[in-house]
Structures are given as structure tokens and as C-alpha cells.
């Protein structure tokens, strides 16, 4: 009895986070179409459904999948491709643990498991007409890339568009060619900074929040989206508020330990929220009371 579609829970086939064909605890087989290194410790895999290469993945910018390496385990990974692109899916992954190390060793044609998509998405629809300020740090650019694609594709529907990106060193900058092409092709203010560099780098040096000093957007009409290490997001949110952006207009994407991604296993609890199903994208006003609590 192989991979039985769960017969008792047809109501799960349509849920808020998209289409889930079978039991959400059982991974589906997906095939590695391409895998390549972005930086020394960050790689991207492109996936297609195994045997159904034409089948589309449905997801919203900001959602994540649980990727399963056979026999090793699962890891929650944000989707980093264009949500309108049919037939394949990109995940940009920081090699940090057992599962991500195993995933980094995959070759074209290998099969892995996938459950998802899960979680909330970036608020792009009701941001129309507003200035957009995206602040990302490190691997945090990856979960926002689908949102960036969306904004660029519908560029006229938004006001000023600013992308502030902080990386550790110039060598750690993700998608450098693509970033450069966005700058050339679109109406976007893109500022990149690194935490440290040698003398060969001509760009900004300093923490990503300092870049806000160079941004010219209307704080009364700005939607901000922030993703990166939580401590970085804390400083970014503080700076945004200092610059006059309203708490309710600031969105953050949080990370917690996740085992099931369905709200059952309890690990990802953050105060009253389950990051897996209530997040990962939260309005800052939803978490403002608990954001400063230590070890929550």
C-alpha cells in the first residue's frame, strides 16, 4: 500500500496555504533539476515534480516547504523563485545542519521529498499604491525574492521601491548578477552593504540599518518587509519606526524550530502563535508586545 491518499481528510485538500494533495505529513517526490552554489556556503536547488515535470507548484511569496533528504530528515526552507513561474521551484539554502548538508550534496536527477507550501505570505496586495521598503540580511534575501519578483512585475502598482540588503562580506552577496540587472532594468533603489570588507570593495560598509539614512520614501505611506536574523530584524524595525514607518506597516518573517509545519508538534511556538501556520510572515504589530522578551 504505497503512498495512499488519505481518505478521511479530503477537507485538507483545500486549505489556506494552497493545494495539498495527500496527507500533509507525507512528503511528495520531487526531482532535482539543477543545483548550484551561490556563495561558499549557500546553494540553490531547482525542483520539479518527479515524473510530472509539467505539474505546477502553487505558492505565495513568503511561504516555505519542508524538504526531506532520504533517511536524514526534514528542514523548513523558504521558496525563493518567482511564484508565477510554472513547473519548477527554487530554494536557496544555507548549509548549516545535517539536513542542509545532505541537500547540498544532491546531484541533478536525485529525488528528495517535499511537503508544502506552508505558512503566511508577504502582504503584497494591500500594499499597492504604497512605497515599498524591503530590508534583508544574509540568507533573508531568499524568502523575499518571490515578493521582489512580484513587485517588479507589477512595478507601476507600487510607489517608490527600495531594497536594502546587508551581507557579511562582499563574497557572501547572493544573486549578484540578478541584483545588478534589477538595478539596470527597473525603477528600484538598491543599496547593498557588508559588515566587513577589505579595500577592494567599492560599496557600503556597515550594518544594514545605516542604509535607511539614504532612503527617500514617504514614511506615512510605506510598507516595510524585513527578513534576516531576528536580532537584525529588531534593529531594522527600530530604525524604521524611528524614521516614521507605522508598526502595522512593518512585516517580519520569523524562524523557529519546526518539525511538522502543521501546528501539531508545538516546537515553533512564539507566544500565542505557531510560526509554521500563523507565520512565518507576521505584521510587526502582532508581535510587538513579545518581540523584546528574552528567550521566548
Amino acid at each position: 500500500m504505497f503512498l495512499n491518499v488519505c481518505k478521511h481528510f479530503t477537507k485538507m485538500t483545500e486549505n489556506k496555504s494552497g493545494l495539498i494533495k495527500s496527507d500533509p505529513m507525507i512528503p511528495e517526490s520531487v526531482k532535482v533539476k539543477k543545483i548550484f552554489w551561490e556563495t561558499e556556503d549557500v546553494f540553490t536547488i531547482e525542483l520539479v515534480y518527479d515524473g510530472e515535470e509539467k505539474r505546477n507548484f502553487n505558492f505565495k511569496p513568503g511561504q516555505f516547504n519542508m524538504l526531506y533528504a532520504f533517511g536524514v530528515g526534514e528542514s523548513a526552507i523558504s521558496i525563493s523563485s518567482d511564484s508565477t513561474k510554472k513547473g519548477s521551484l527554487l530554494h536557496t539554502i544555507h548549509k548549516v545542519g545535517y539536513v542542509t548538508s545532505e541537500l547540498s550534496k544532491l546531484k541533478k536527477g536525485d529525488i528528495i521529498g517535499l511537503r508544502g507550501p506552508f505558512g503566511s505570505s508577504w502582504p503584497l496586495e494591500d500594499a499597492k499604491g504604497k512605497d515599498i521598503c524591503i530590508i534583508v540580511g544574509g540568507i533573508g534575501l531568499a524568502p523575499l525574492r518571490p515578493a521582489i519578483y512580484h513587485i517588479l512585475k507589477h512595478r507601476k502598482q507600487y510607489g517608490k521601491f527600495t531594497l536594502l540588503y546587508g551581507a557579511r562580506t562582499p563574497r557572501d552577496i547572493l544573486y549578484p548578477v540578478e541584483l545588478e540587472s534589477w538595478k539596470k532594468k527597473y525603477d528600484i533603489q538598491l543599496e547593498i552593504t557588508v559588515d566587513r570588507s577589505d579595500s577592494t570593495w567599492r560599496g557600503h560598509v556597515g550594518v544594514v540599518t545605516t542604509l535607511l539614512n539614504y532612503v527617500d520614501c514617504n514614511p506615512d505611506n510605506t510598507r516595510a518587509m524585513v527578513c534576516g536574523p531576528e536580532i537584525m530584524m529588531k534593529y531594522a524595525v527600530d530604525e524604521l519606526i524611528k524614521h516614521g514607518v507605522a508598526e502595522k506597516e512593518i512585516y517580519v518573517s520569523l524562524e523557529r524550530n519546526m518539525k511538522c509545519a502543521l501546528g501539531f508538534c508545538g516546537h515553533c511556538q512564539y507566544g500565542p502563535s505557531f510560526v509554521c501556520k500563523d507565520g512565518p510572515v507576521f505584521s510587526f504589530s502582532k508581535v510587538t508586545d513579545i518581540f523584546e522578551i528574552k528567550e521566548l
Binding site: 556556503d41 548549516v96 550594518v207 545605516t210 534576516g228
Partner: peptide
């Protein structure tokens, strides 16, 4: 501002693990 930024740089939040 400079002190805060320096502290944040010290945290090395994007450190490789």
C-alpha cells in the same frame, strides 16, 4: 548610532556556522 552599529557588527549575525 555608531556604537549601536558597531555592537551589531560585533554580533556577526550572518556568521557561518
Amino acid at each position: 548610532q555608531r556604537l549601536q552599529s558597531t555592537r551589531m557588527q560585533l554580533l556577526d549575525v550572518f556568521k557561518r556556522v
